[in-house]
Amino acid sequence: MSRRALLELVAALAAAAIVLLVAALVPWLRFVLTIAIAKGIAVLGILLLLRAGQVSFGHALYVALAAYAAAFAAPRMPEALLLLPLGALVSGAVGLVVGLFVVRYREIFFGMLNLALSMVFYSVLEKFYALTHGTDGIRLPAIRYVGTALGPEEAGWATLAVAILLALGFGAFVRVYLLSPMGEALSAMKTRETRLEFMGIPARRVLLAAYVLSAVMAGCGGVIIAMTTRHVTPALAYWTASGELVFIAILGGAGSVFGPFLGAFGYELTRTYAAALVADAWQMILGIVLLGVILFAPGGLWGMGRSALRRRPAGEGAA
C-alpha cells in the first residue's frame, strides 16, 4: 500500500469516527448524517460517470427503485442484511438493461434519456396507486439487523453503522477501480473516445460497467434512505432529486472519492441549517452556496481543502 493510500485510509477512518462522535453528541443530526452518507454512496456512482464526462440526470431512478424494492420486501423480510443486497440487485439489474440502451448515447442525450426514464418510473409510481399508494408512499416496518430486533434508538445507530461501513467499502472500491485499466479507460473516454476505440477498447462496455456499478451504488444509497426515513415516496425519483445528486458531486468535487461525502455533508447540513434559519428561502441559500463554489472553487469542497493544504508548503518556498 502506497503512503498516499495509507494516508487516505487513515483520513477515511478518522472521518468515520468524527461522524460517529457528532451523531453521539447531537442526536438529531444522526438522521441527517445517515441520509448524507446514503446520498454520498449514490454520488460515488455519479463520480464514475463524471470521469467519463457523462452526466446522468436520472440516477434518482436507481435510488427510488431500490428504496421501493426494500419497502415492498420489508414486511416479509425485515432484515437489513438481505434488503441491501436485494436493493443493489434490483437497481443493478435494471441498470444493466437500461445501460445497454443508454451507453450508446453521449452528453445531453445520455443525460436526458436517463432523466426521461426516471420520470417514467416516477409516473409509474403514481399510476399504480393501488400498489404504491402514490404520493402517500409506503411505510417500512421495523428492520432487523442480523436477525435481531432493535429499538428505534439502536436501529438508528445500526443503520448509521451500516451506512459508514458501506461508504468505506464503496469508497475504497471506487478508488481502486479508478486506478485500474477500467478506470483509466473512463478518463480516456472523456478526453478522446475515438482514441480508446483505436486501441481496441470498446468504449461502450467500459461505460456500461461504470453505469451498472453506479446503479448498484445508487441502489445501496436508496435502501439506506428507506431504512432511515422508513417511509418512501415517489419524490425520490423526481428529476430534481437526480439534479441534487449531480449538485452534490460538484459541490464535493469530482477529484476524489472523498468528494461525494464532503459534498453530501455540505449539502444536507446547509439545507438543514438554512431551513432552520430561513424556512422561506432555503432554496435560495443553497443556490447561492452552489454558485459560490462553482465560481470561486470549481474543484469543490475537496479541491478547496486540498489547495488550502498545499498552500502552506508553497509559502515556505517549496515549488
Binding site: 432511515t228 426515513t229 417511509h231 418512501v232 419524490a235 425520490l236 439545507r271 438543514t272 431551513a275 432555503w282
Partner: peptide
C-alpha cells in the same frame, strides 16, 4: 418548518 423538500427531509426536520 417547510414541508416543501419532501418526506425524507421532513422526517429529519
Amino acid at each position: 418548518v417547510d414541508e416543501g423538500p419532501g418526506v425524507d427531509h421532513f422526517v429529519g426536520e
